[in-house]
Amino acid sequence: MGILFDILSWTCLVTGSFFAVVGGIGIVRLPDFYTRLHGGGITDTLGAGLVLVGLMFQAAKGGVLSAGFEAGPWLVLGKLVMILFFLLVTSPTSCHALASAALTNGLQPELSEKKDEPSR
């Protein structure tokens, strides 16, 4: 039983770490500010999400394996869910605030083609 949770949590942790590093590479490699926002987006969603889900599996393992009903591991699980929730609510908000502040200050995005085409 425990090994199942371990495998799930390790898979999540490793893939989450991978996406976090890819987002970090993206933030360094991408050419201009607005595209770098997307690199930050990768680490904030799948990177952070999978790492936290991996930790949740560890907490759930502690909860399932403990003799009888112990509150401790389940509280840890609840706190991890809250951290994930806050990250998923606040990170796009600050990302949007950052983009709109940059646009207000007149930072123009580098567009590849179809300049300012009013689609629809």
């Binding site: 933030i27 500010f33 770098r36 680490t43 990170s91 600050s94 990302c95 950052l98 930072l107």
Partner: peptide
């Protein structure tokens, strides 16, 4: 400066 704030956020 926005690149720096983005990096700080991350």
């Amino acid at each position: 400066v926005f690149d720096r704030i983005l990096a700080l956020n991350m």
